[in-house]
Design a protein around this nucleic acid. Sequence first.
DNA 1: TGTACATCAGTGAACGCGCGTTCACTGATGTAC
DNA 2: TGTACATCAGTGAACGCGCGTTCACTGATGTAC
Lengths: 199, 199
Amino acid sequence: MRAKKENTNVRRDQLTAAALEVIGREGVHGLSIAGVSGQAGLGASSVYRHFESKDALLDAVLDHLQQRLLRNVTEVRAEAPGAVERLRLLMERHACLLAANPAVPAIVFSDGLSAGHPGRARKIRQIIECYLGEVRAIIQEGQAEGSLKPELDPATGSVLFLGALLPAALLCQLTGGDFQILEHYRKAWPIFRQSVAVG
Amino acid sequence: MRAKKENTNVRRDQLTAAALEVIGREGVHGLSIAGVSGQAGLGASSVYRHFESKDALLDAVLDHLQQRLLRNVTEVRAEAPGAVERLRLLMERHACLLAANPAVPAIVFSDGLSAGHPGRARKIRQIIECYLGEVRAIIQEGQAEGSLKPELDPATGSVLFLGALLPAALLCQLTGGDFQILEHYRKAWPIFRQSVAVG
DNA sequence: TGTACATCAGTGAACGCGCGTTCACTGATGTAC
DNA sequence: TGTACATCAGTGAACGCGCGTTCACTGATGTAC
């Protein structure tokens, strides 16, 4: 059956979202043009009306992901004043994001995306390092205001911040969602807090 | 040119090692029968003299990986008496293992291995949970002997132990080895230690 | 010690499947007059 | 208001490439007698 005609901007968003769903369900390895188009209710060849290639679609997915991650940082900065509370809120939001979008860890962990595609690997690296940079900035601000330990190396702190949730995301992915990321966050945050905050 | 004839047990080991090298260099996605056989100096079809299928080869690789991980635990138990020192040694060895074998994080993070292969996903999950179980046991022993904080949840502690190195391994993989895992370990261990040990 | 034979590892050619991609065509929607 | 036309999104069939796998054959090594 022929799908209803839609504006290409709308379809681009739909296909990007469809790709995220498929990746979340079947992993990056399981992402096929037919799968994505099917998820969006289109035939496989229709995808090429809106994206030049599978690579272009993947690039759009990565852009979407980066915006999503950085939006959390912006919101947290707006909502909380101190560095400690900002870190807590950010970790909580990050846990929610990972729990609600299994595609996120799948993409970050995947080597299928960057395989034989140096530009792609660079993009993923840039997304993570950008995120790490934001966390590092919050840590430095916290040290300046005196709420975080001055002897803490901000770069190491940011990597450990990521590490507080990363294995949980991995376990969640491997167990098909059985491992509860949010519950892990609740237990992990106090421990992380204790190792970076003063007092 | 025809390769020299070799015992199938020897070839199995060679092919498993070759697979680890190829995965370390090109990722799980880049692992092909032709690539593995080439690495071992054989033609592609020769692989089927020693493994029933690509799946069987991958299973052998996973078995090898599990043994490698658990050997670290056994050695650490033999070499250090206290829980804190055991955890430190284990983290150090784990960092060395990750740094020397880029295939390890590639396999753990990969979804290409488990894609459409529930048994494979279960195997990877079992390897990680087994490792986590060993760390948890060390933590519980430490609490019993009074060297680790009694209020620490051992399960959460074991996940955080993994998380102290996991993002470093990920960054190392994404940067093609530029990120120094061992250096990160040296900075991360004191922070982790402080959050789990008493005093 | 020599000979016939069984076993087993190595190989290139060929097969088949999955999947990204192209192409010619369809039909809906908007636009010019 | 009606008509002709341009634009653009959707589609199934077909193509081609990569890659796992099979097969018939080769040749080396070990073994029985």
